[in-house]
Amino acid sequence: MSVTPAPASTALPRLPHERRPVSAVQVFWALFARDVRVIQREFVSFLVRTTMQPLLFIVVFGYLLTKMGYLAPTYSASLLPGILGVTLALASLQSMVLPMVADFGWTREIDDRLLSPAPIEIVALEKTISAMLQGILSALFVLPVARLVMGPIPGFTLAHAGEVVLVCVLGSATFSTLGLVLGTAVQPQQIGLMFSVILTPMFFFGCAYYPWAGLDVMPALKYGVLVNPLVYVAEGMRAAMTPSLPHMDLRIVLAAMLGMSVFFWVVGIRSFRKRAVS
């Protein structure tokens, strides 16, 4: 520890501000402004962290393998919405889980926010919304890059913007609330295990790299994967962006994502309360 000079003995300053009670909404926006500031500052590393894997997938499967002739050019139409789904899901989840495990595990940085004058649920809600924003930002970044790498994609359209937005919002909500569950349940020493045991299978069996209808080749798997939230995000992206290709019914997709978001929130907030107040 470095030796610091004793502070000059001038009077301790008082705040020239009259204290007024703040509402939970005000606290929410103040917490959100803090997150926006951090995203801003770490924007490049944030993008690298959340989009590197999907972008490499696009280069290999959307460009190289097609160019080599191993994959049909039409594969890219199936791949792109799936990759966007993965980006959205992974970024929402990561933005929630990693800081939360560190916060509750050892840094306890979150304590300062838990002591803000609002119910502690506001802190969890703000984290969830901010993680959703990060998921959507990552997907927004991947889309043009993918389009650039893969070239024209048959059947791809952004005409149904409303549906795209809906899928993005509910999809990111599903995964940031899942992040709340995992982030409050997983111990720091289990993070690696969580990625290999929960997340890797989830991403490979999430219908991201192939449409759900394609699983007709293996019916047991086709119905087994329905517990996987990523299936709905990827299929929702297909329904919204490549509506002419096989995809799950959008209404089922939206209902499933809504249901899962609510379920994960209820489970996650209980576990959050337990970690926040002992």
């Binding site: 204290r19 007024r20 009670p21 703040v22 005000q26 606290v27 103040a30 917490l31 402004a33 803090r34 500031r37 951090v38 500052r41 770490e42 840094t107 306890r108 940085e109 304590d111 300062d112 926010r113 803000s116 004058p117 609002a118």
Partner: peptide, 20 residues
């Protein structure tokens, strides 16, 4: 437990913002 993602001053300013 300072907020490591923020600068020294921001640690104080954002904390104050939580209190309006």
């Amino acid at each position: 437990n300072p907020d490591m993602s923020l600068s020294v001053r921001e640690n104080l300013v954002f904390h104050a913002s939580y209190f309006g």
